[in-house]
Design a protein around this nucleic acid. Structure first.
Lengths: 162, 162
DNA sequence: TAGAAACCCTTGAGTGGCTACAGAGTCAAG
DNA sequence: CTTGACTCTGTAGCCACTCAAGGGTTTCTA
């Protein structure tokens, strides 16, 4: 099959597949006479595995490790367990951070119940004075905003709403 | 004061300040004879405001809007309220996503209670078969991993542990 | 059989919010 | 006069894609 069909089967888009190939996550496939990439069932399997891991928010490096174990069935899988445990830990940690964040944001929001002029806005006031906490929590868990692609959608909406 | 002191006062690092200047968040400061940037109290205020907002996980674009209102005290602050409400919504949404994620990861983890060989690892098995859910939740709320800088720490640890 | 439409190719650049580094200049203390 | 701490500009890199330009190939339809 060609790249488009693989993309459909695995719910990915075509550029992502080529990106994974460049990045070494997918093996270099055979080519047709017209220089098209030709894939088989094993590629579907592997790509689906990768996408499943991504949907669980693993990094490509984490996935690389898991793929390594899939290819070495005789090895002990203790490291797989450890990797997953660490990943779960990061998710939990990020959730705690977001809870704290939510609390602070709601506090802030209460300072300006309804609209007035910006000079007397409790929110702007609060942001000007609030105690800045420790700062660097050193987890690898991300912030509150998705990356580039999703940002665009967000920005378009902002144009209309704010 | 020079850039280093400003950085200390606002808990930022020097490159970030220059980055904010390039990006238009901080005004272009005066220069000394030796071409050093010279800052005053207003810069400390403004930079601290920005950092406070960042610690609440707002994007630079959101912060730009807030700064606009700080500079236009006569304007109505309803948009500030809306911005904050939306931001709170995104945080809440991401927390829900992370909860679902945690559930799935823990499910997965239970499939391989203790180490065996990778061929019979319940986790790898699970990742090979699990139903992939819908996919795109269209919030602007980010994933489970922090960006480059924090990744590095993470990677170093991985080298030692996995 | 022509030609349009759908697909595919490579290359390069862009996203956010920094961080890091090279190679140079400035300045204060010993 | 040197050492070291600081600063400057410019450029490249991080993640995980995404998009666009400018071309080639295949497949469908008139």
């Amino acid at each position: 099959m060609k790249i488009g069909e693989l993309a459909r089967l695995a719910g990915t888009n075509v550029e992502t597949i080529r990106y994974y190939e460049r990045d070494g996550l997918l093996p270099v496939p055979a080519r047709s006479e017209g220089n098209y990439r030709i894939y088989g069932e094993t590629h579907v399997q592997r790509l689906s595995f990768i996408r499943r891991c991504r949907s669980l928010d693993m990094t490509l490096d984490e996935i690389r490790i898991l793929l390594h174990f899939k290819e070495s069935p005789q090895e002990n899988c203790a490291d797989v367990n450890r990797l997953l445990d660490r990943h779960i830990g990061h998710v939990a940690q990020r959730m705690q951070e977001l809870q704290e964040l939510e609390r602070q944001l709601k506090d802030l929001r209460e300072r300006c119940g309804e609209a007035r002029d910006a000079a007397h806005c409790g929110i702007l006031d609060g942001l000007s004075q609030a105690i800045v906490p420790d700062g660097k929590t050193a987890s690898h868990v991300q912030g509150t905003h998705r990356h580039a692609a999703n940002f665009k959608v967000e920005k378009e909406n902002q144009g209309k709403q704010v």
